[in-house]
Simulated scan of single mutants.
Amino acid sequence: MNTRPINVIIIAEALPAHLEDVHAIMAEVANLSRMEEGCLRYDVYSDSEHPTRMNTIELWQDQASLDRHLASPHVRRGVMQLIGKMAGLPQLRILRPAVEELN
Rank of each mutant, 00 (worst) to 15 (best):
L102K: 01
H74T: 12
I6P: 03
P73V: 12
I94G: 05
T56I: 10
S46H: 10
Q81K: 12
M86E: 06
L70P: 01
D21A: 14
L70C: 05
L59I: 12
Q91W: 04
E49Y: 08
E58Y: 04
I83K: 04
A27E: 14
Y42H: 01
R68M: 06
R68H: 07
N7D: 14
A27V: 07
R4P: 00
L15Y: 05
I94R: 07
V22L: 02
V44C: 13
G78S: 10
D67E: 10
A24R: 02
N31R: 13
A87D: 15
M80A: 15
E13R: 14
N103S: 11
Q61T: 10
D43A: 12
I11G: 08
P16S: 07
I10C: 08
N7W: 08
R34K: 11
N2E: 12
S48A: 15
H74K: 07
A98G: 12
S48W: 08
M1L: 10
N55Y: 13
P51K: 02
N31V: 13
R41D: 15
A17H: 11
A14I: 10
G84H: 02
P90A: 00
H69L: 01
V22M: 01
L59R: 08
I25C: 02
G38N: 04
P5I: 12
M26H: 07
N7H: 13
R93C: 14
R93G: 12
R68L: 13
I9L: 09
E13W: 05
A98K: 00
S65F: 06
N55G: 06
L82K: 01
W60E: 00
R53A: 02
R4A: 15
L89V: 14
I10W: 03
A98M: 11
Q63I: 02
V29I: 15
D43G: 05
G84Q: 02
E101A: 11
L70M: 10
L92K: 07
V22I: 07
L19M: 09
V22P: 04
Q91P: 00
V44T: 11
D47S: 05
A98R: 01
W60R: 06
R34T: 09
R4L: 15
A14L: 06
P73H: 07
L32A: 09
Q63W: 09
A14Q: 03
R4M: 14
Q91C: 06
T56F: 11
I11M: 09
L19H: 08
A17P: 00
N31C: 10
C39Q: 04
E37M: 08
L19F: 06
N7C: 11
I83F: 09
R96T: 15
R93Y: 09
E58M: 02
T52M: 04
L40G: 10
A14P: 03
I10R: 10
M26Q: 11
V44H: 06
V29R: 01
Q61P: 00
V75R: 03
G38S: 04
A27R: 10
G88H: 06
E101T: 11
R34Y: 09
V8H: 02
T52Y: 07
T52A: 09
S72C: 03
H18S: 14
P73A: 15
V75N: 07
T3F: 10
R68A: 15
E20L: 07
